[in-house]
């Protein structure tokens, strides 16, 4: 009488583990650990075409000491009058981003159509401060950004 052949087969895991180890090594070596994105802007001056109705725009003038002067353009007179002079003081030569956020949020509440923000830096303004302002504006819903040349 023939004995029944066992049907329990075992997979050789050693080769599989070797393959997985090589895969992990390769992927770890080629992995990109930093995520690079981009901050997209339109050219500030001349970018806004004269197409009939102009959209309100928030101009941010960066002063040499790091303080910011905010100015509204093409906004309804009532709002313009209320927010005629907005100033954000500097902290250690850098813009006070928290104060700027508060002012922009307040402005956005009064003028929801405000989606354009233009930054006018000075020669000595640091690139990271400009990006910081752009990031803040985007967070507050001002998606059309621009930087004015000197």
């Amino acid at each position: 009488m023939r004995r029944k052949k066992s049907l329990d087969n075992e997979i050789d895991l050693v080769a599989f583990i070797s393959l997985l180890s090589v895969c992990i090594c390769f992927l770890l070596l080629t992995a990109v650990w930093i995520q690079i994105g981009s901050m997209n802007v339109k050219q500030a001056v001349g970018g806004q075409a004269a197409e009939g109705k102009k959209n309100p725009a928030l101009w941010t003038l960066v002063q040499s000491d790091g303080s910011l002067s905010l100015r509204l353009e093409d906004a309804p007179k009532k709002v313009s009058r209320k927010f005629a002079r907005m100033r954000v003081e500097a902290i250690d030569g850098k813009p006070n981003f928290e104060q700027l956020r508060t002012q922009v949020a307040e402005l956005k509440k009064v003028l929801p159509a405000l989606t354009t923000a233009l930054i006018q830096p000075k020669k000595a303004t640091a690139y990271e401060d400009i990006i910081g302002m752009m990031d803040l504006f985007k967070q507050e819903g001002l998606s059309d950004l621009g930087v004015a040349p000197l």
């Binding site: 901050m39 997209n40 339109k42 050219q43 001349g46 020669k123 690139y127 400009i130 930087v147 040349p149």
Partner: peptide
């Protein structure tokens, strides 16, 4: 670099404007 002064960046912004590049993308870290 994040510490670059706008004085240096300005030349690129102006040149791109003169060359007709309307969209500028600043590379940043997320």
């Amino acid at each position: 670099d994040r510490r670059t002064k706008y004085e240096v960046l300005n030349s690129v912004v102006l040149a791109s404007s003169h060359a007709g590049f309307s969209d500028i993308h600043f590379a940043v870290l997320q």
